[in-house]
Design a protein around this nucleic acid. Structure first.
Lengths: 132, 132
DNA sequence: AGTGTAGTTTATAATGGTTCTAAATAAGTG
DNA sequence: CACTTATTTAGAACCATTATAAACTACACT
């Protein structure tokens, strides 16, 4: 099982639940965005069984901490996650309330000319809001 | 009173509460970031009286709709607003959990090379996360 | 294989920011 | 002043998320 090593490397025991969540999140051709609730639905549909909501939260947070998932900065009542952890940006369609990936090559280089003493830049994220 | 006209122009009746909120938000040299709770505290301290939390929410949302305030896209359990409604970007200090303004001139021009059919760009917002 | 320990899952409760409700109050209009 | 409509308010409701604590499971060690 390919996910067992992935989990072990991060010090996470390869439990049935975590492997199932891996299969839903990472066994796809395309990366995607999701909320915790959407993920829980997806697990229920794809695997035909249910994983406790608390476990879904725990697992997603563990995956985020280990760099397998990214949180998308966005104003919403729900938190959006992204299975695409490479450097990239997002369109946000205000009408449809949908996120669309912007490949890194879709956005020109961004230069930040200001420095803050003692701090270094961890990430630069661009959100492009779309209207009709 | 300078805020009465501002309110009237937007079709908002210039009530005592709205004027007091204007004074706290806009009667300052520098713009600033705030959450609803911080604003409510500030009103209590500066004006010595209290405005119902519901009214603070209503007013901030009304001001946002009329372009007097901007919501900052950021992952947080609380919503952050900005009294600086000009085009600009933000640092987010992960350790201190603090926002810092980036002047527009601090960020080089950003070119978005991809188009979405039927949609136009409303805004481009950059969030630069800082770590130690 | 059996045992012990630490990690994990789970249902459920608690938390906390935000929104809703409906009654009281205030502003604008004639 | 009388009337209509907007606004304020306290409190309830909502809902995503986090905490709790008991049951369960993985794993290391004999």
């Amino acid at each position: 099982m390919k996910y067992i090593d992935k989990l072990r490397i991060s010090g996470l025991r390869p439990t049935k639940q975590r492997i199932q969540i891996c299969e839903v999140l990472f066994n796809t051709e395309k990366t995607f965005h999701f909320t915790i609730n959407e993920l829980e639905q997806k697990i229920r549909n794809k695997k035909g069984n249910k994983i406790s909501l608390a476990t879904v939260y725990n697992t997603v947070h563990a995956f985020e901490k280990n760099g397998y998932l990214k949180r998308i900065p966005l104003n919403s009542n729900q938190t959006y996650f992204d299975t695409n952890v490479t450097n990239h940006h997002h369109f946000y369609d205000l009408k449809e309330e949908k996120l669309i990936d912007l490949e890194n090559s879709d956005v020109g280089p961004i230069s930040i000319k200001r420095k803050i003493n003692g701090k270094k830049i961890k990430s630069v994220e661009v959100l492009v809001k779309l209207e009709d």
